[in-house]
Amino acid sequence: MSLHLNDVTLTYPDGDGRLTALDRVSMHVPEGSLTAVVGPSGSGKSSLLAVAATLITPDSGTVTVDGTTTAGMGRGALTELRRHKIGIVFQQPNLLPSLTAAEQLQVMAQLDGRSPGKARPRARELLDAVGLVDQADRRPHQLSGGQRQRVNIARALVNEPTVLLIDEPTSALDHERGAAVIDLITRLTHRQATATVLVTHDRAHLGAVDRIVEVQDGCLGAPRPGRLTAPRRPPGLPPPGSGPAQPRGPRAEVL
């Protein structure tokens, strides 16, 4: 129930040669923990996320999702793995324009073969968790940027993934909304017990994460515990694994 990257090297074609985007990167993200990946632009953060999401096959090294090593898997099997085990939160909310907030989530359940009868309550439950039940029937153009980002997060959780991958979730948000989103991610990681990777170039709001790793030119620095640098634990953050009946943190309402 975790994410393992073992000795992953990824290169891109670059003129006559190859550009090394990830250089023998190893990383372990246990379940119920949040690892933030920070680093300057072009350092390889998105590449790392894409490899973990099985969207790119690395040149060498292995990716293991919930005990399944992806090396040698066909495209269909990888798609299925993504569907069942991996939740992706995109940098842009990437919501489908024709669907309401609730339907964005139902699609995922539908893809997983769940009946509409089961998909609907699941969608409501998750929209409730991100504080959007009242907006369930709105389409993306009727939601604010922060609300869209919360739907994006809820959607990633529909099929109870073991790995949650999040790309620059705050880049389109102002400071306060960004903080609330990180807070929400932290709480959901503990509550849903996902192995979460959060990619960001923005070091603000990282007070509550479990670990921070730095990428520099495709190399991973040593992880340091995030909470040590945090000024304090944010209010409303429950201890890991303490069940679903959490009160929502005050920040979720800011969005």
Partner: peptide
Amino acid sequence: SGDVAVLKALGASTGN
């Protein structure tokens, strides 16, 4: 095609 890319990333099969 943007929506299609998102759905594929989220685990929708091409056949589907």
